[in-house]
Amino acid sequence: MRISTGQMFHQNTTSILQKQTATNKILDQLNSGKKVNTAGDDPVAAIVIDNLKQKNALVGQFVKNIDYATNHLSMAESKLGSAESLITNMREQLLRGANGSLSSVERQMVADEMKASLEELMSIANTKDESGNYLFAGFKTNEPPFAFDSAGAIVYSGDSGVRKSIVSQNSNVATNVAGDTAFMSAKNPLGDYDVNYLASQQGDFKLTGASIVNPATHVEDTYTFSFVANGTGVDLQVTDSSGTNVTTVPNFDPNNPVSFNGIEVTLSGAPVAGDSFTLEPKSEVSILDSLQQAIKLLETPEATNTPQGKSKLAQLLNSIDSGQNQVSTARGIAGNNLKALENITSNHEEELIINNSALSKLEDLDMAAAFTEFEKQQLALNAVSSVFGRVGSLSLFDYL
Rank of each mutant, 00 (worst) to 15 (best):
Q308V: 04
L236Q: 13
N255P: 03
A370D: 11
N142A: 08
Q377C: 01
G323N: 03
S311P: 03
A368E: 11
I287W: 05
G40P: 03
A314Y: 09
L359H: 13
P250F: 15
D112N: 10
A368S: 07
V249L: 11
N56A: 03
A383L: 12
F397E: 04
K64F: 04
V246K: 14
S85M: 07
Q237E: 11
Q377D: 00
M90W: 02
P281D: 13
F136K: 03
T304Q: 11
A383E: 07
Q293W: 01
N99Q: 13
L288S: 10
N382I: 12
T266N: 11
S74P: 02
T141P: 05
S395M: 03
V219N: 05
L352A: 06
T266I: 03
F388Y: 07
A330D: 00
P144E: 12
M367Y: 14
P144A: 14
A153N: 12
A294F: 13
L313K: 06
L352M: 13
V162K: 06
V155A: 05
F388L: 00
L394Y: 08
Q93F: 10
G262N: 02
S360G: 14
L58S: 03
Q315N: 08
T38W: 12
A216S: 03
V265E: 11
L365D: 15
T244P: 02
M75W: 02
F227V: 04
S241L: 02
S226L: 10
S4D: 15
V258E: 07
V238H: 14
L102R: 13
F225Y: 15
R331I: 00
P257H: 09
S171M: 06
G97K: 15
A210I: 08
K376W: 02
S85R: 05
V110M: 09
F146I: 01
N230W: 14
S226R: 13
G138Y: 02
E120H: 05
K55Y: 06
N31F: 08
A76T: 07
L118K: 10
Q326K: 02
T224S: 11
Q11F: 07
L30W: 15
R96V: 10
T248V: 09
N172E: 13
I295R: 14
E264W: 15
A273G: 12
M367C: 01
A116R: 02
E113S: 11
T127A: 15
D235M: 15
H72V: 00
P301M: 04
R107K: 03
L291F: 09
P43N: 12
Q20T: 15
D112P: 08
D129W: 00
V249E: 12
S117E: 01
E342N: 11
E284N: 08
V234E: 10
A216I: 08
